[in-house]
Every structure is written in structure tokens, then in C-alpha cells.
């Protein structure tokens, strides 16, 4: 696949404050790329620079091999779905969607045909004459997507577009967005702070913090092989425990030896990442290598989430085994589920 967007040494600062460090990122054609990070990490600024609403302090972006930053937003073949939708309140659904084509002075029949096509795509047939204020949040979201797609942009930018929707609708829209992206063959650059959303939809995830890209990879890569404690923590509610390694495939966690499948890095002290669902617990505490006291139990439907205190360290555990606070339980982790990171 060819690169459609190449971001080179992009830097942004407001006064003395750096918003973006030096960002280098290649985005491929037809890729669903998610920029994931906590609020204030610079992800929205990056998106707004691509859209043209912010200027970069230095660096460059190539779009299809050509310089992008010299063009104002209205001359870029890139469209945006805004977090707040930014629908035109004085226009009905049809006028909102047709806006981009009317600017181009497109033939009326073509506009009508394309609007109908877009309404089909987002499942809003029959809503042509509705005013946008009369629509629900989910419907407004669909109008915003249709409006941005009617121009057939090569790249669609989405700035936390599902943030305002309730959980069920959000899940539905995640699947629909992914299907849309596949069938239209458009590059999606999706900004979110919701790690689950990122894992569900993306071909590639870019994890950002404090204006820097920490890791880029597939959802599986990022989830299973986080490069740093920050990524591990952000991508899932992980246990990140201090550990020591004397040799390959052996790690001491809280003084107890565990087998693992990672080699020893160049330092002795390591971070050990263990996901809550990978922790095995048993009420027969003495049979397991570590034991601790259950501090807190929350029922989550499919499983219980409990906090187990082992000496002075808290472990987060997801398990179907029911326990009570105060109970002493044993803890074990099988070797392929222990992930070692350099400290």
C-alpha cells in the first residue's frame, strides 16, 4: 500500500509550551488509523493541523506526495467529522449534506442523487427535510458523517465523533464506521481517548502522550506487546509490577520466581505487565506462588473485578471465581501471559 499522508518532523508550540514534539508518521491508503491518547496529549492538535485549522510551527506534511500545509482548509481534499458535529443549524438534513456539492456548483440532479446515496449509506432515508435540531445525537452524528463523505475525500478525519453517544449506540456506530471505511476504501484518521474504541476499529493504532508518539502498531501488537508502562496502562487496565531478572525466561515478582517467555533486557530491573484477566486465583492459597488478601470486589456481569493486596502491592484481578473482601487467595500467572518491559 502507498502512503497517502507522510508527516515529517511536525512540531507545534504555543509560546514556550510544546504541544507536539517532532512527529513522524506515515499513513497508508485505505488504512483505519487511530490516534489514541489522554486528553491534552496533542492528538486533536495533530488532526487540526492535517485539516488546516491550526498551523504547524515547523515540519511538513505530504498528502499524496505533495505539500499539504500551504493550502487553506477549504482547498484540501480532506474532510472532518467534528466532535460536536458542527452541523449547520439553519439548514435541514438534505441541505447540510449537499453543502459541499453546492459550493462546487454541481448539477442539481447529481446533488440529489448523491445526497440520496449518502442518506442510504448512513441509514437516514426519509429524513431529508428534517431540521437538524429535531434529530437525536446519533442521527446528527450520521448527518455529520454523510456531509463529510459526500465530497468523496481521500482522507476522512474523525475527532472523537462518538464521544457524545450512549454506550449501546457507540458500539453500533463503531461497527458501522468500520464497515463504511472498508466498503468506501477511504483512509480514516480517528482520534479518541477510548482504548476499547481504538482496539475495535483500527488497522493501526498510534499511542500518543505529551506530544510524542509512544508506539505505533496493530491492535494486537499494542495490546500484547506494549513498549512502555504508559502504553500498557493506557491500553488496558493492566497490572504493572516491578520485577527483577537474573537471566532469560525467569523473572522475580515480589521476590517469587515466575517463568516467562521473554529474554532478559539490558537491565536487571524490569516492569512486568500482567492483564487482570490473565491472573489466576485460587481459594486454596497455599498451592499458589503468591498469596494476598482480597480488598474489594465489584461485580461486572461477566466477571468479578477484585483488588488483591499482596504484601504492599495491589493486584487487579478479573475472575469468575467469587470471593469476599478479607478472604485470603492464591495468585498465579502462566508464563506466556507475563510480559516483560525494560524499565
Amino acid at each position: 500500500m502507498k502512503n497517502i499522508i507522510e508527516i515529517k518532523n511536525l512540531h507545534k508550540s504555543f509560546g514556550i509550551e510544546d504541544i507536539l514534539g517532532k512527529i513522524n508518521l506515515d499513513i497508508k491508503e485505505n488504512e483505519f488509523l487511530t490516534i489514541l491518547g489522554p486528553s491534552g496529549c496533542g492528538k486533536t492538535t495533530l488532526l487540526r493541523i492535517i485539516a488546516g485549522f491550526e498551523t504547524a510551527t515547523s515540519g511538513n506534511i505530504l498528502f499524496g506526495g505533495k505539500d499539504l500545509l500551504i493550502f487553506p482548509p477549504h482547498k484540501r481534499n480532506i474532510n472532518t467529522v467534528f466532535q460536536s458535529y458542527a452541523l449547520f443549524p439553519h439548514m435541514n438534513v438534505e441541505e447540510n449534506i449537499a453543502f459541499a456539492l453546492k459550493i462546487k456548483k454541481e448539477n442539481k440532479d447529481i446533488i440529489k442523487e448523491k445526497v440520496t446515496k449518502m442518506l442510504n449509506l448512513v441509514n437516514l432515508n426519509g429524513f431529508e427535510k428534517r431540521r437538524v435540531r429535531q434529530l437525536s445525537g446519533g442521527q446528527q452524528q450520521r448527518v455529520a458523517i454523510a456531509r463529510a463523505l459526500i465530497n468523496e475525500p481521500k482522507v476522512l478525519l474523525l475527532d472523537e465523533p462518538l464521544g457524545a453517544l450512549d454506550l449501546k449506540l457507540r458500539k453500533e456506530m463503531q461497527i458501522e464506521l468500520k464497515n463504511m471505511q472498508k466498503s468506501l476504501g477511504i483512509t480514516f484518521i480517528y482520534v479518541t481517548h477510548d482504548q476499547e474504541e481504538a482496539l475495535t476499529m483500527s488497522d493501526t493504532i498510534v499511542v500518543m502522550n505529551k506530544g510524542e508518539i509512544l508506539q505505533k502498531g496493530t491492535a494486537e501488537d499494542i495490546y500484547n506487546e506494549p513498549l512502555s508502562a504508559f502504553v500498557a496502562d493506557f491500553i488496558g487496565t493492566s497490572n504493572i509490577l516491578p520485577g527483577q531478572m537474573e537471566k532469560d525466561f525467569e523473572v522475580y515478582i515480589q521476590g517469587v520466581k515466575f517463568h516467562c517467555i521473554d529474554k532478559m533486557p539490558d537491565t536487571k530491573d524490569v516492569d512486568v505487565v500482567i492483564r487482570p484477566e490473565d491472573v489466576e486465583i485460587s481459594k486454596n492459597a497455599d498451592k499458589f506462588p503468591l498469596k494476598g488478601e482480597v480488598i474489594n470486589v465489584v461485580f461486572f456481569g461477566v466477571h468479578y473485578e477484585m483488588i488483591v493486596k499482596v504484601e504492599d502491592t495491589l493486584w487487579k484481578v478479573h475472575s469468575t471465581v467469587m470471593t469476599k473482601p478479607g478472604e485470603i487467595v492464591g495468585i498465579d500467572v502462566s508464563k506466556e501471559l507475563i510480559h516483560i518491559m525494560r524499565r
Binding site: A51, G52, F53, P72, P73, H74, K75, I78, N79, T80, F82, S84, A86, L87, F88, P89, F99, A100, I103, K104, R147, A148, N151
Partner: peptide, 23 residues
């Protein structure tokens, strides 16, 4: 007027004159 609406129009290809006239 929410400035995001103006940005929305620019994003869809409207120059400043069109933004003024239609938004």
C-alpha cells in the same frame, strides 16, 4: 455562533465569502 460551524463550512470547501454568505 459556534466557531466549529464556521470550521465545518471551511472544511467542506467554503471560502470566506461563502462562509459569510451562507453561514
Amino acid at each position: 455562533i459556534d466557531y466549529k460551524i464556521v470550521e465545518g463550512a471551511q472544511d467542506l470547501g467554503a471560502n470566506s465569502f461563502y462562509v459569510m454568505l451562507k453561514i
